[in-house]
Amino acid sequence: MNKKIAVVAAGGRVSRKVISEAVRRGFDVTAFGRKAENMTDAQHYVQKDILDLTAADLAGFDAVVDGFGAWTPETLPGYMTTTEHLCQILSGSPVRLLIVGGAGSLFTNKEHTTVLAEAPDFPDEFKPLAAAAAEVLKAMRQHDDVKWTYVSPAADFQADGERTGKYILGGEELTLNSRNESIISYADYAIAMVDEIEKGHHINQRISVVRA
């Protein structure tokens, strides 16, 4: 049977890549977004804000992908409020929750005492976003009532990067490829996300991906 998935905040660029990848593989995809028109490849579309979603809206799906994104100081708190709302309505259900996470919280040492966002060359303009995404991960670690997976991209997350179809699956630590790079395109990230939905077993774990 084909997987039935929902993607919330479907209008975002990562969300659209995930939707396209899932549809390409024959998934039955329902997109939830704030705009009136469906701007995605999803077969079904519901105009609804994340905070207006109910348990009934998400019942019956195999997985829900949370593609919420924000940049400004006014909208960054939305990371936590939207994630907690999704956790509330998915609590105790068999529906998986996969979160488009950040790279700033990836550990840069084996002892797991320092993270990428603390590196001297980490751009100041990305620190508030990294902090907001890290807070979500911290909160998710407390949720044993939800089947969540937090998917961190590589440090260089490229919106218009090519779809190579190859990636390295990592865990809690910043992973570099054979060229000493931490880079992934949105398209390859989407492949990893859909792979995790399709056959992954990383329940209540953070995983990470980098271009092979």
Rank of each mutant, 00 (worst) to 15 (best):
A42H: 01
L98S: 01
P73R: 02
G26E: 07
V146W: 01
A56C: 10
A42V: 00
E37N: 15
A117I: 15
R16M: 07
A190I: 03
N204C: 12
T54N: 06
R206H: 15
L106P: 03
H201D: 15
S91P: 09
K110E: 14
D144N: 15
G170S: 12
I207N: 08
H44V: 01
S182E: 03
G26W: 02
T75N: 12
F27V: 02
R34M: 09
G69H: 06
I191S: 10
F107K: 03
Q88T: 12
V46Q: 06
E21S: 13
G92S: 02
R96T: 00
A134I: 09
V136Q: 06
R25F: 03
V194Q: 06
Q43T: 11
T82N: 08
A55R: 14
N180G: 08
A10R: 00
Y45K: 11
G102L: 07
A130M: 03
E125I: 12
D156H: 11
A190D: 01
A159V: 13
F32Q: 00
V65S: 01
S20L: 15
G101W: 05
G33Y: 01
M140P: 00
G12M: 08
L137F: 11
L106D: 05
I191D: 15
I168N: 05
F32V: 04
H112N: 15
G200T: 05
E135Y: 09
E196M: 10
V136G: 02
T108C: 03
A139E: 06
G67Y: 07
I99H: 06
T40M: 05
T164Y: 01
T30A: 01
T30Y: 02
R34D: 05
D66H: 14
E125Q: 13
D62N: 11
T82I: 06
D195I: 14
S208Q: 08
K147D: 08
R179I: 03
E111C: 08
T40I: 05
K199A: 10
G33A: 12
Q88C: 07
R179V: 15
S105G: 15
K48S: 05
A133V: 13
A212S: 12
V95C: 09
A59V: 02
G26C: 07
A192W: 01
D49P: 07
R163E: 14
G170F: 05
D188Q: 11
L53I: 04
L90F: 03
V23G: 10
F157K: 01
D121F: 09
L51F: 02
E198Y: 05
P128M: 11
L169R: 15
D62H: 05
G92L: 04
G102C: 09
I168L: 14
Y186D: 09
